[in-house]
Amino acid sequence: MKTIKATPITAENFLPYGYVANISDSSGSYGMGAYPCTFHRDLVLCPNGSSDPIAFGSLKIGKRAMIVQDVEYHSHACEVMMPMDDDIVIYVGPASSDVIELDKLVAFLVPKGTLVIFRAGVWHGAPYPVHHDGTVLICLPERTYLNDTKKYLLDEKDFLIIE
């Protein structure tokens, strides 16, 4: 019987077959925003047969009070989110035109390694790490953050505390 030896994967030795990326190492990439939430967009692109390849990025999230101060949605794109190194708390609300229904927002505890997919139009925002600063894998069609994101900052009187 023939045997093959497993070798450590690198971007170089895997290149004939595809792409490898360490999403948690965003050094050298452009970050949008600043601590406690910095989005490193489009770190890896995955062509999917349509005009918009799927882009993989990382969201660095800092430990902070769980206070909802903003909401956003994407009209045409689902968003994939997966906490990589800590559990996270997310908040979501049902898709609605451009009307923010704060009374319909709910929060969920998501264990690290659990993949979450937001439907197009669902209200959400940056997640909160449970124990320490963390990294969240984000997958969206390329440039969604520029061409299909509606974000609203809430008035302080409308902030919500997550327990």
Rank of each mutant, 00 (worst) to 15 (best):
I67C: 12
A55W: 03
G18P: 04
Y30W: 07
L153C: 07
I117C: 11
D87Q: 07
C37A: 11
P53V: 05
L153H: 08
T144I: 03
A95Y: 08
T10C: 11
S51K: 04
A126M: 12
I162N: 06
S58E: 12
D148H: 09
I162A: 03
D98M: 08
V44R: 06
P127R: 05
L153A: 11
R143L: 14
F56H: 00
E142P: 00
D86I: 00
T149D: 07
D133R: 02
G93P: 03
P141G: 02
P47N: 06
H74K: 00
L146G: 04
G57E: 00
H76L: 14
G62W: 12
K5H: 13
T144Y: 07
L146A: 14
V122L: 00
C46Q: 08
W123Y: 13
I88M: 13
C139M: 13
F108E: 02
P111R: 06
W123M: 09
K60C: 08
C78E: 12
K157N: 11
R119V: 05
T3D: 04
D103C: 08
A65R: 01
A65E: 11
G134Y: 02
V116L: 14
A126N: 15
G93H: 05
D25G: 09
K2F: 13
K2E: 14
P129F: 07
D85I: 05
E163M: 04
E72S: 09
A55P: 09
H76Y: 14
T10G: 08
K60E: 10
T3H: 05
R119Q: 15
F108Y: 10
F118D: 10
N48P: 01
L146D: 15
G28F: 08
A34S: 05
K2A: 14
K150H: 13
D87L: 07
D103K: 13
D42W: 01
I88D: 03
M81W: 09
H132N: 14
D148K: 09
